[in-house]
């Protein structure tokens, strides 16, 4: 691993709460993100892993500016961006782009592909028609889109092709940071590898930072350089890939790994049958959020909320009890 890491995005103490109206006048608070501190480096992929409701998608959208954080700071290339909406961020915004989970839903069904690809250029670049056309053809070549199909509509493409178009749209402005939210989850298995390879290729070529949000642990193993495991809005473990996979420390991480089916393991066994449900992000428990389901639980776990502490160099764990 290269010792030189160039910081591109710094997230510090970010919190995000949503107001949920409940009943006529009452309001409840949904704590989607609690105290998130992360750094993204140029040319490196950080995988954000967690199950549904852990807040990983919310974090991605907060970074992008679709939600303002309730607390904390987000600095992109040194500039504070958390208080600005995407349209207020001006030129900086084109340097970070997002790829969504559902490729069909992320493309306007009434627009031709060429129009969709041209849009970012219209918004951010000052180009003549010929230059735009050139840009489009060049990105089509890089992402494997047939230029003859530029006049078609999204529904005329397969899921994999639609995701290529979404990737092309994200790449056409040559961003420095890509946020990918479950980019292959809704694709057929034999296509997933195609798209993953494409993304990694592009990342390498343009030395981009990538935040890869996913619930699929096996994919994490393949694409990531660093991994952050999220649970109920918090990071519970953070390390580089090899460390995390060889030596997962947090009990939740271990539970996750033990539950992932592969062709060769045997996860269907009695020992995994924990009956306790995940707490609600509206009524977060006192102390450690994972305590109720944790095999290592002791008395102190329900009293004090654990901090994300250094377990080893570069390896952070939110569990004072783990050996």
């Amino acid at each position: 691993m290269s010792p030189y890491l160039d910081k591109l995005l710094e997230i510090n103490g970010v919190e995000k709460n949503f107001d949920i109206p409940s009943g006529f006048f009452a309001k409840q608070i949904l704590h989607a993100l609690n105290d998130i501190t992360l750094t993204l480096y140029r040319g490196k992929t950080l995988a954000l892993v967690g199950e549904s409701g852990c807040g990983k998608t919310t974090l991605g959208k907060t970074i992008l500016g679709l939600y303002p954080p309730s607390k904390g700071s987000i600095r992109f290339k040194g500039e504070e961006i958390s208080r600005h909406t995407p349209s207020q961020r001006g030129a900086l915004q084109q340097k970070m782009q997002m790829i969504f989970q559902d490729p069909y839903a992320s493309l306007n069904p009434r627009k031709r592909i060429e129009t969709i690809l041209e849009q970012p250029l219209h918004l951010h670049a000052n180009m003549s028609k010929q230059m735009r056309r050139k840009s489009i053809l060049s990105i089509c070549e890089e992402t494997g889109i047939d230029p003859a199909s530029l006049q078609r509509y999204p529904h005329q493409f397969s899921g994999g092709q639609q995701q290529r178009i979404a990737i092309a749209r994200a790449m056409i402005l040559h961003p420095e940071l890509i946020l990918a939210d479950e980019p292959i989850a809704s694709l057929d298995v034999s296509i997933q590898a195609q798209i993953l390879n494409l993304m990694m290729q592009l990342q390498k070529k343009y030395h981009m930072a990538m935040l890869f949000i996913t619930h699929d642990i096996a994919v994490v193993r393949y694409v990531s350089d660093f991994v952050a495991v999220m649970y109920l809005g918090e990071i519970v473990e953070y390390a580089d890939k090899e460390t995390l996979f060889n030596h997962p420390v947090h009990p939740y991480t271990q539970m996750l790994f033990a539950s992932v089916p592969t062709l060769h393991n045997h996860i269907v066994k009695e020992s995994l049958q924990k009956q306790n449900e995940i707490p609600s992000p509206i009524n977060l428990p006192q102390g450690c959020f994972f305590a109720d389901r944790c095999p290592l639980k002791v008395a102190t776990c329900t009293q004090a909320h654990p901090e994300l502490a250094t377990y080893n160099k570069g390896h952070l764990v939110r569990c004072p009890v783990a050996p």
Binding site: L66, P86, R89, G90, Q93, Q94, M98, F100, S106, Q119
Partner: peptide
């Protein structure tokens, strides 16, 4: 969302 993210 993609349109908003683009700054539209």
């Amino acid at each position: 969302e993609a349109a908003r993210a683009l700054g539209m």
